[in-house]
């Protein structure tokens, strides 16, 4: 709450010209004039732009004790919604009168940057009162001194709750990740022939005929028809992504034919496991 008071001072007499121009009266928004106590902050606003003049303040004084009662803490230039500039002065009551009395918010002159007349801010009397009596009553709170201050005890519970929630969220995220991964693996096994074969091959030794047969079934499934050495091109037509492995695939079919139909083992037969992994990789890359 601030009551605006406009102090207007008419220059009644124009004295003879002096080297130092006389300060002009300022339009000041004064603070409430009553009911202050030790430690209270008081704000005063001085209008800088007047219809006659756009006042540019010169060097402003640093924060300092303005008088025995008040300390001036900040001087800030601000703009109101109408675009007018104000100099806001923040004071703090740093002294306590022994009884209720009138104390002055000290008047001062705002210097002008261009050497022109400064702005005169008048004294502003306000009422201030002590917080207590000179003699302390008792220890009931109006004692000799307020007690020492301990470090703030942080509230453990909400911190613990937050950490637990985050850990829970992290666990959920990891579970979702694992779940998604498992679901994806499973779907691949169901829909991607070589993923399916790879899963089956995990339990089959490489020299077991079942391993070869499993890979044959994967080729058949991938091509949508039975593939043999002569029809491998049909596989590539349907699955062009496997074409880079054509050498290994043909080698596999040759070795498989030798093994299953000619009854001889091929010495450097390709491992169905290795080939299956390579095929699976291509199949996955092609599917995204």
């Amino acid at each position: 709450m601030r009551r605006a008071a406009v102090a207007l001072m008419a220059l009644a007499l124009l004295g003879p010209l002096r080297a130092e121009p006389l300060p002009e009266p300022a339009v000041v928004e004064q603070p409430r004039a009553f009911g202050y106590q030790l430690g209270d902050r008081v704000h005063q606003r001085v209008r800088l732009d007047t219809p006659e003049r756009a006042f540019v303040p010169g060097e402003l004084p640093p924060p300092e004790r303005a008088n025995v009662w008040f300390e001036r803490q900040a001087l800030v230039i601000e703009q109101d919604p109408d675009g007018r500039r104000w100099l806001r002065a923040d004071y703090q009551l740093v002294n306590s009168p022994p009884r209720l009395r009138i104390v002055n918010l000290p008047g001062w002159v705002i210097p002008s940057a261009d050497g022109g007349p400064g702005l005169q801010v008048p004294d502003w009397p306000v009422s201030a009162a002590p917080l207590g009596r000179e003699t302390a009553f008792s220890e009931s709170g109006l004692g000799e001194l307020r007690p020492d201050r301990l470090p703030a005890v942080p509230d453990i519970a909400p911190l613990a709750a937050r950490r637990n929630h985050t850990l829970l969220a992290l666990a959920a995220m990891l579970a979702a990740w694992a779940g998604w991964w498992a679901w994806r693996q499973r779907r691949e096994r169901d829909t991607l022939p070589f993923a399916h074969a790879a899963a089956a091959l995990r339990h089959i030794a490489p020299d077991d005929p079942a391993a070869w047969q499993a890979l044959h079934r994967a080729f058949d499934a991938a091509a949508g028809r039975v593939i043999d050495a002569a029809t491998v091109p049909a596989l590539f037509e349907r699955r062009p992504e496997l074409r880079p492995l054509s050498a290994q695939i043909e080698q596999f079919y040759a070795a498989s034919a030798a093994r299953f139909f000619a009854g001889r083992e091929v010495a450097d037969a390709p491992s169905p496991h290795a080939l299956c992994q390579a095929l699976r990789q291509r199949e996955r890359t092609a599917r995204g």
Binding site: G39, S96, P130, L131, G132, A136, R146, P147, R149
Partner: peptide, 9 residues
């Protein structure tokens, strides 16, 4: 307020 009070003391 504690600081105010003690300052006044």
């Amino acid at each position: 307020w504690d600081a105010r009070y003690n300052l006044e003391r």
